[in-house]
Design a protein around this nucleic acid. Structure first.
Length: 509
RNA sequence: GGUCCGUUCGUCUAGGGGUUAGGACGCUAGGUUUUCAUCCUAGUAACAGGGGUUCGAAUCCCCUACGGACUACCA
């Protein structure tokens, strides 16, 4: 048995990967890399009814986008494959038979209808039916059948499931890396189905067998699995195997209110709950994804990493490498964490500022081209460099910089009233004649000097001149330095915009 | 209902018996930017409640409340 760390992320291909799942994958990845171990992807597709076309690829693409690719898994066969449970059917048969031989599991012939009835009956009495140590003697299973009766039934081809034979009453001491010691009495457990009548194992059996065979050292998974930990540990015991270490991660909760973050919550708040956009092949419904909404993967990774974990310092920004270095499973929180869209935005703003300018320029170029605007890369680069600090997404760029590409079509009403007074048109005409039309070279610095000098010479207030100038060039009281804009759009365009504003406001006055 | 897990500013969190309970997001106010945003500075605000243990509990124990997960031939 190898002593090196091996962890797995084991999603079910039933749809897009929730960001909670992504975080589980991330923590697995970080833990593996921190310990020079292997990060394995295993597809748990033992429920063919819930199989969804494209989900597996979606999961793989999500991991790649997040920058946390797996070392072993579908398409990256290591020495422990195959990595899809549907391709491991024979293995499970062998092991479940072993359990039956040792009296740790048994055949059950009760039909779903019969069980449903029992559940309803119990519910009518305000109780809960459990197929377990207390009830199994009186049910339709091999525990209550003679050897010949059993063989007869099996030969006849009766439908059956295989259940785990839970100990009648024993105290289990379970250890969780994050939560510490957990004590459970097996008396409250039920006899979980290990093998379904369709010939496939359930999650419980398959995950134990695979984790053992794949030499998984640490099982890091969501808190929703905590209730089945006693079963899983009992299974290891029944097989005579040494269990891996377990760590159950807290849930990601909705921002306001209670409960798990759901797609519905995300829709309400305008935030995706999936890393990538997802088109559901069954419903035809499209779900938003972080990538398509313009978030950088660094944003999501950083946000998710800090949702439930921190290294004890004040550090907030981590790249993947830093996360690997700092990660410590024992510092993961126990309590669930509400997802904060505001903090997400803050991270995104940060990472947009740090993104390589080339990437931003290329993305913006695409947007501009779609608007029918064709300008050179250096010009776009100049614009992006000056406006990116006020953006959160690339999709904000247009709103923040359209005036670098087009003359204003309208003028903000409030700003117009404030900036363009009765004598303003005449003032602008003078500025135009004295400075704008004569300035050479028409650069940001040159213009700034000339305009300021002109204002001083005429003993005017800066606001009186600068504000209408901004209004004329931008159409509103916003944007970067007005001299930067004028220099960028050029002398001719600047002249035209001033003239347009003068005629517009003279007409309406 | 039962089982298990959890609970520090609005939110993410630091904190392992003695702290003015710290940081970050948000919000508010000032400053910078003769616009807007960025940025800087300051302010705001928390140990769920009750019992113990202790000279001393946010920190340890118990109870209560609240919240969550699970309770399928799903994972």
């Amino acid at each position: 048995m190898s002593t090196s760390v091996r962890v797995r992320f084991a999603p079910s291909p039933t749809g897009p990967l929730h960001i909670g799942g992504l975080r589980t994958a991330l923590y697995n990845y970080l833990f593996a890399k921190k310990n020079d171990g292997k990060f394995i992807l295993r597809i748990e597709d033992t429920d063919q009814n819930r199989f969804v076309e494209g989900a597996e690829n979606y999961i793989i693409e999500s991991l790649n986008w997040a920058g946390i690719p797996y070392d072993e898994g579908p398409g990256k066969e290591g020495n422990f494959g195959p990595y899809k449970q549907s391709e491991r059917k024979d293995i499970y048969v062998k092991y479940v038979n072993q359990l039956i031989e040792h009296g740790k599991a048994y055949y059950a012939f009760d039909t779903p209808e019969q069980l449903n009835q029992l559940r309803q009956q119990a519910e009518a009495k305000g109780e809960k039916f459990a197929y377990g140590p207390q009830t199994r003697q009186s049910l339709n299973n091999s525990l209550n059948l003679s050897k010949t009766e059993l063989d007869e039934r099996l030969e006849r081809g009766d439908d059956y499931v295989i259940r785990f034979k839970t100990s009648v009453s024993r105290h289990l001491h379970l250890k969780d890396v994050i939560r510490g010691l957990i004590e459970v009495d097996t008396a409250v457990l039920d006899d979980k189905i290990l093998f379904k009548s369709d010939g496939l194992p359930t999650y419980h059996l398959a995950n134990i067998v695979d984790d053992h065979l794949m030499e998984i050292t640490h099982v890091i998974r969501g808190e929703e699995w905590l209730p089945s930990l006693p079963l899983h540990v009992s299974l290891y015991e029944a097989f005579g195997w040494e269990p891996p270490k377990f760590a159950h991660l807290p849930l990601i909760l909705k921002p306001n209110g209670k409960g798990k973050l759901s797609k519905r919550d995300g829709d309400k708040l305008g935030i995706p709950v999936f890393p990538l956009e997802w088109n559901d092949p069954k419903s035809g419904e499209t779900s938003k994804g972080y990538r398509e909404d313009g978030y950088l993967s660094e944003t999501l990774v950083n946000t998710l990493a800090l949702l439930g974990w921190n290294d004890g310092t004040d550090k907030e920004f981590y790249n993947l490498k830093e996360l690997i270095e700092a990660f410590d499973l024992t510092r993961v929180h126990k309590g669930g964490a509400k997802f904060d869209p505001e903090k997400l935005k803050w991270f995104q703003q940060h990472y947009l500022q740090k993104a390589p300018i080339n990437a931003l320029v290329n993305q913006y170029k695409t947007i501009l081209n779609q608007k029918g605007i064709e300008v050179g890369i250096p010009y776009i680069e100049h614009v992006v460099a000056t406006i990116r600090e006020r953006a959160i997404f690339v999709s904000d760029f247009w709103e923040l910089s359209h005036f670098y590409f087009q003359a204003p079509e309208t003028y903000d009403a409030k700003a117009s009233k404030k900036a363009w007074k009765s004598g303003t048109s005449e003032l602008m005409r003078q500025l135009y004649d004295d400075v704008i039309s004569t300035q050479k070279p028409f650069t940001e610095e040159g213009l700034e000097q000339a305009v300021k000098k002109w204002i001083n010479d005429h003993d005017l207030g800066f606001g009186k001149v600068m504000q209408p100038l901004r209004l004329a060039l931008v159409g509103a009281m916003q944007g970067p330095s007005i001299f930067n804009i004028a220099a960028a759009i050029g002398q001719q365009e600047t002249e035209q915009r001033i003239k347009a504003a003068i005629s517009k406001f003279s007409a309406s006055n």
